[in-house]
Design a binder for these strands. Structure first.
Length: 499
RNA sequence: GGCGCCAUGGUGUAAUUGGUUAACACGUCGCCCUCUCAAGGCGAAGAGUACGGGUUCGAUCCCCGUUGGCGCUACCA
């Protein structure tokens, strides 16, 4: 059972629940480097077991974004491999078979409690200031009851039977031993009533079946690692090594989120960040690259070179043991500086090519053109009508964005509502229109007021091509970011004038 | 609340693993260059390493406690 003989195999397992996330890219990069350093394999697995959050277009965006960043995988849903399928929704039979093994050896049991019952119990526990935990009602159900329930067609989940005392100890390769008392481990649902597995089951089964040697994932998983360790032993399997990486943070140190940061890889690509810069920046998060010694630094010519490196250099020099465990703030300011460095270093031909691939691409211009064709008299007016599509900063004056009968405060509050609503909207004119109208009716805003506000935020002006179409063309990721930045900027400005 | 993880300038990281005036990069400010703005060059301010105790001749580094931040606490991942 020595793992030294096993060839290194690592994986990332994103969920297709929306836009591909920078956190996925971060963990992806780390896994990629880890595999390359050891001549191992890097696997992409799609964890699409939550049908309520499933977004059909998400998977392809994940593929595209990771490829854009240059993080190629050896095995995955789209490239195949010997351990497929690599999409969990296609592996439900495997999970059911495995959960049966657990049922057979008594390390799992059926639970007939309804979501409502569970919710009520949880509330009661919270009210009593007790740690919310499943009370094991169904753990010791008599055989006859279980069979009767099944015969009656009562829906059930399957839970893991966590030992009622003792503790689980595991080793985190970066932190050392971590001990968690079983009192603090819930009887986790392994198989949902819809027949799909939860993360915990699917993850362990797949990692084992796919021969994963090292689990390199975000720190948020530490607390549930005992569940996974317990599962490995319930199955009688050797467990992988666990490496928990620090969590990327917002400026306020909270876990990075779309409310406070552009978090979509689509955003970075569409806003004209270079993949090398994004990857380089991610490589800076948490350290890991050894500092140049003074001689190397002198040879490099400039000390800032220590912050600039490629994936190849990371593969060569990155040391996982050097990673610092404090969650790094994802600082857009430094990313922009880095991106500027890469842009300036580009040969002119490549710089032009980069423009033509992104912000000046044929496909982008093609979708903008119909919006302005009827509105211009000479081609020279193109820029007048479309500038906001090509700009990063638009700053509408207050007389444009504050409706006559509203105060700046209530307008900003409405903008914030709009942001929340649009975040959860499909990016089509119909869906945006519906969302907007629902909101404005609820808040008693006129169509004119609401649309003008959004127009001002998006374009910086009171005149523009059709708003909804413009939003769609500009893209969800960038539109959302523009609204968010507008609100932030106005709040800052208001705070400053008060001082 | 419970459990866990973490803690070096505003931000990201260094500090030959206990011996330095605590270093580098971003950002900020100033100067130079310059038709402007960037870029580039030069320089400055900014932490005494969260706090309090130990251990030690000596702690950023080891130990304990406190505080704070973050995460988890779902039929989400």
């Amino acid at each position: 059972m020595t793992d030294s003989a096993r060839p290194t195999r690592v994986r990332i397992a994103p969920s297709p629940t929306g836009d591909p996330h920078v956190g996925t890219a971060y963990i992806g990069l780390l896994n990629y480097i880890f595999a390359r350093q050891r001549g191992g394999q890097f696997i992409l697995r799609i964890e699409d077991t939550d049908r309520t959050r499933f977004v059909p277009t998400s998977e392809q965006m994940i593929f595209d974004s990771l490829r854009w960043l240059g993080l190629d995988w050896n095995e995955g849903p789209d490239v195949g491999g010997p351990y497929g399928p690599y999409r969990q929704s296609e592996r439900t039979k495997i999970y059911r078979e495995h959960v049966q093994m657990l049922l057979n050896n008594g390390t799992a049991y059926r639970c007939f409690c309804t979501p409502e019952e569970l919710e009520a119990k949880r509330k009661a526990q919270m009210a009593a200031k007790v740690a919310p935990k499943y009370d094991r009602t169904c753990k010791y159900l008599p055989k006859e009851t279980i069979e009767a329930n099944i015969a009656a067609g009562k829906p059930f989940t399957i839970r893991m039977a966590v030992p009622e005392d003792g503790s689980t100890t595991f080793r985190d390769e970066l932190r050392g031993e971590i001990v968690i008392d079983h009192n603090n481990v819930d009887d986790q649902v392994l198989l949902k009533s819809d027949g799909f597995p939860t993360y915990h089951l699917a993850n362990v089964v797949d990692d084992h079946l796919m021969q994963i040697t090292d689990v390199i994932r975000a720190e948020e998983w530490i607390s549930s690692t005992p569940k996974h360790v317990l599962l490995y032993s319930s199955f009688g399997w050797e467990r992988p090594k666990f490496w928990h990486m620090p969590l990327l943070r917002n400026i306020d140190k909270s876990k990075i989120s779309k409310r406070k940061n552009p978090v979509s890889l689509i955003y970075y690509r569409e806003s004209g960040f270079l993949p090398q810069a994004v990857i380089n920046f991610l490589g800076l998060m948490g350290g890991g690259m050894p500092t140049l010694n003074p001689i190397e630094a002198a040879n490099a010519g400039s000390t800032k070179e220590v912050d600039i490196f490629s994936v190849a250099q990371m593969v060569e020099k990155f040391e996982f043991q050097r990673i610092s465990l404090g969650g790094p703030v994802f600082d857009l300011v430094k990313l922009k500086w880095l991106n500027g460095e890469y842009l300036r270093a580009l040969p002119q031909e490549e710089f032009v090519a980069a423009l033509k691939q992104t912000i000046l691409s044929d496909s982008y211009i093609r979708v903008i053109a119909p919006l302005v064709q009827t509105r211009l008299e000479t081609l020279g007016q193109w820029g007048d009508l479309t500038d906001f599509f090509f700009r990063d900063n638009v700053a509408p004056p207050a007389e444009v964005w504050v409706p006559k009968k509203r105060t700046p405060e209530e307008t900003l509050a409405f903008a914030a509502e709009m942001l929340t609503s649009l975040e959860g909207t499909d990016w089509t004119t119909e869906a945006i229109d519906a969302a907007l109208r629902a909101l404005l009716t609820a808040k008693e805003w006129s169509v004119k007021e609401a649309f003008m506000l959004l127009r001002a935020i998006l374009t910086g002006s009171a005149q523009s091509p059709p708003l909804l179409e413009s939003l769609v063309v500009f893209g969800k990721a960038r539109s959302i970011d523009r609204i968010r930045r507008f609100i932030d900027n106005q709040k800052k400005a208001a705070a400053n004038t008060k001082k």
